[in-house]
Design a protein around this nucleic acid. Sequence first.
DNA 1: CTAGGGTTAG
Length: 812
Amino acid sequence: MSSQLLPTTTTPLSTTTTPPPLSPPHTLSQRTHIPTHVYTHPSAILLELCTSMKELHQFIPPIIKHGLYNEHLFQTKLVSLFSKFGSLIEASRVFEPVEHKIDALYHTMLKGYAQNSSLDNAFSFFSRMNYDGVRPVVYNFTYLLKACGDNSDLRKGKEVHGQLIVNGFESNLFAMAGVVNLYAKCRLVNEAYKMFDRMPERDLVCWNTIIAGYSQNGLAKRTLELVIRMQNEGHRPDQVTVVTVLPACADIGSLKIGKSIHGYVVRSGFESLVNVLTALVDVYSKCGCVGAARMIFESMQYRTVVSWNSMMAGYTQNGDSKEALALFEQMLNEGVELTNVTIMEVLHACADLGDIAKGQFIHQLVHQLNLLYDVSVMNSLISMYCKCKRVDIAAQIFANLQGKTLVSWNAMILGYAQNGHVTDALNHFCKMHQKNIKPDSFTMVSVIPALAELSVLRQAKWIHGLVIRTCLDKNVFVMTALVDMYAKCGAVSTARKLFDMMDVRHVTTWNAMIDGYGTHGLGRAAVELFSEMRKGAIKPNDITFLCIISACSHSGLVEEGQNCFTLMKEHYSIEPSMDHYGTMVDLLGRAGKLNEAWDFIQNMPIEPAINVFGAMLGACKIHKNVDFGEKAANKLFELDPDEGGYHVLLANIYAKASMWDKVAKVRVDMERKGLQKTPGCSLVDLRNEVHTFYSGSTRHPQSEKIYSYLETLIDDIKAVGYVPDSNSIHDVDEDVHEQLLNSHSEKLAIAFGLLNTNPGTTIHIRKNLRVCGDCHNATKYISLVTGREIIVRDMHRFHHFKSGSCSCGDYW
DNA sequence: CTAGGGTTAG
């Protein structure tokens, strides 16, 4: 087949594709180095044009035929080409048999090892060179340094650094630029700077190297400072500088700097360079201007896969994952060669949209593209499955994953935590701990909310200790999570202490603290903190208003709550969301202003949703209002026919009004629809163990003891005035074996807690539903007769029972 | 052989 004039293979001899404008014509400068006597030989020209392994193999027979195979320059060229195409085996097959190896042959072979093999191979070849008496030249060191940098191998890198000093290259510009780069790539940017600083002369490339070091290590401000210094010292930033600085600018999200660099790009005539434009797409996206990013993207004459990836990332980062997927489709249609980053981006978009079907399609693509061993891609798959609520599949991938990284563990922990598998999240965290993998801020921010959910103060303190030991106690995200956790564990004053200690606070930090006060019924404190916040630099957001209005609601501060609602709309121009409306109805309704609440609903500018009527129904239960209760309930049955809870609420309202026929009707209705009430359950933490109690259950080992103690306890509180609430219907769907009031889960949990702790100890209870009226009343008396403080966290808020009264002021 | 710097990501 070699007699063909034109090969039928897909890799033609001539390169007909137009190279992208950025790629400089390297080949030209390479040719100038070829000695003329070789260059004039036809085989040499062919070798120069060789673009693939296949072509190379075709050219070898004529070279051998012409007896050129034994010429040093041909041997060297062959070694170079075999290395370039990735076959070190063939390169060394040429190299080894050569009897009198010239230095250049060694140098070329070393370059091959450094660029296409393991570091170990490169180093052992370098030792052999020494052994064979070949004097090293500067670029031996630069190649080795580059390889060490790429592998972040500081130990070997330092060795090379030492050797180049021994060989007298320590003031060589190229060698030292390589050293600077090495330290920067090994994340020792300060060390890199020291080397840079010591250099007697520094050219543009050296500046670019150190600037890249800062940029790639996330030190955006330093990066920008250095660019200014470099200009002051008379260096004009080139396209490499621009492409290096733009990510730093993206990191700090500075549109202003981004735009000024864009201006520089235009003035300098860089505006047709793919890399520069791609970096601009990234900057504009990260500064929230996807539109501008897209315009640049559209204007690009050539795009690399990185351009596409950046544009996709731009959309996902700006919350438009649909558009990201559309771009991906376009990539497939246009036959763009996908990379691992493409896949990661697309998975991110699928995760955002909860589109598991698309996600699974991408999973197949991962197989086809042979990316199963790319840990980053696999991490993205784990995250995607978790976001699509398939933690089981994610766990499977995690279990089979080779070379798990911290990110893999984090993705899994977050996945468990966000899907309500709190215990799994914690177990996973402990496993990671046992394997001596050091957690980072992401790990903590995933685990801490899981502990907040568990609401066990002992574990809260444990993780707090761990945060300190891992030096993460200056991280805003972690600290904010801790503030929230302490509040959710009932330790609101500890939360405040941490809050006060923080140097930097985000809006979420303030929100967590305000919400903490709110759920503890400390509305006044919430209002005070909110006004303090308004004096500072951090602007309240929509969530802040949700927290503050709800705090007012829990404390009966109707007027304050209404003022906040007005303030939000008028002063902060925040459009109220459905949640805000719901909270407002709660505020009015809880306070007994049922007519106002109903009017408020009627005047809403948007169609009220479930949460709004839910708040109304809850208020009707508190204030025993059948009329509004029925109205709200009917709306709810329309909007959410499958939720049993609303039926129960309505039944309770009827029961309070002794409308037993209606109660029965609701019960029949529920049975017909097959609806069930969530079983009540309370948790107590005792000596490293969490004890769970279900209403009426006798499964606990201490069950007998608990029930008999509860009996005497009930007698004791009756003696001081407790009257059981015979009207309080707790479970409508219960059959004839109606449980007694005093077998409610919270009473069991309290009795257990009292029995197993020393006098004076505060008891923490966590309940999945709201506390029922009778239990609330009984707990007040229990706190009185036992002299204990009892803190109950229910679905919505905290109740601190002490000396016969509750922090909620019977208002919940 | 003829050296050193650059864009996307969980």
